[in-house]
């Protein structure tokens, strides 16, 4: 069995008095693609923000065997190879594609790395479209290109664990297909991936293991192939069966 890269124990996050996620325990093993799926508002983005240290949370998070919650800052985590591609992409709109990518290497630069040109060429090899647009301002890119730039920028940090928040959001099917193909390619290159998705079928097709998040808790978990054929996943999305919860 592959060693554990990231693990949470009973992770809880509150917004004011409301609990957004409740006792979530997940595990990501080295070299795996793990997906967290679930309908809107289930707490998927909150989970990622808590892992990244952007939100105060309770419970335990261990990354590479070290507890991180409240102990390691965001830049510390990025330096250790835990990198998040956020749902809103958060690009530097009025800066060029190349500068956006360069800044992805900022945490490594501070730790002495100077091989940014080579790393950028590697990113361009994965996303040739970005090479074509390197001098263009990020704000003028199309939706698909923005997602590619967000992922490329994260890859400049040479992540050990890449966390993707809804990479398919608002993208046309052909581009979604391309993005998921790259996710698989990253896995082959040795990057572990935590893939948060609403697009359950696509995510489960590429993932090794999956969790279904509903109302802030893990409702189902299993290897991805099993979940793909589980009718309860569909119910949790479209409410076809008229049942109120699949957690029961």
């Amino acid at each position: 069995m592959k060693p554990t890269l990231l693990e949470t124990q009973d992770l809880c996050v509150n917004y004011g008095r409301v609990e957004a996620i409740h006792k979530v325990s997940i595990r990501i093993r080295e070299g795996d693609i793990v997906t967290v799926i679930g309908p809107n508002g289930a707490g998927k983005t909150t989970l990622l923000s808590a892992l990244m240290g952007l939100l105060p949370a309770r419970g335990e998070v261990a990354y590479q065997g070290q507890p991180t919650l409240g102990k390691v800052s965001v830049d510390g985590l990025v330096g250790k190879g835990l990198v998040l591609v956020p749902e809103k992409r958060e690009l530097f709109g009025s800066m060029s594609v190349a500068d956006n990518l360069l800044l992805g290497a900022f945490a490594r630069h501070r730790r002495g790395a100077r091989d940014h040109a080579r790393t950028m060429e590697e990113v361009f090899a994965i996303f040739p479209r970005l090479a074509e647009r390197r001098a263009q301002e990020a704000g003028t890119l199309s939706g698909g290109e923005r997602q590619m730039l967000a992922m490329g920028r994260a890859l400049m940090a040479k992540p050990t664990l890449l966390m993707l928040d809804e990479p398919s959001l608002g993208l046309a099917p052909l581009i979604v297909k391309e993005i998921f193909r790259i996710v698989v390619q990253l896995k082959d290159m040795g990057v572990s991936v935590l893939l948060v998705e609403q697009n359950a079928r696509a995510a489960l097709q590429v993932a090794d293991y999956g969790y279904v998040l509903e109302n802030g808790s893990v409702a189902l978990e299993s290897d991805a192939r099993t979940l793909l054929n589980d009718p309860r996943v569909i119910e949790s999305y479209l409410g076809l069966g008229g049942s109120h919860s699949i957690a029961a």
Partner: peptide, 16 residues
């Protein structure tokens, strides 16, 4: 400059 444009984005790149 990046921090001025997008604080969240900068933070996620390790620019505190």
């Amino acid at each position: 400059r990046a921090t001025a444009i997008n604080r969240t984005g900068a933070r996620l790149m390790g620019i505190s």
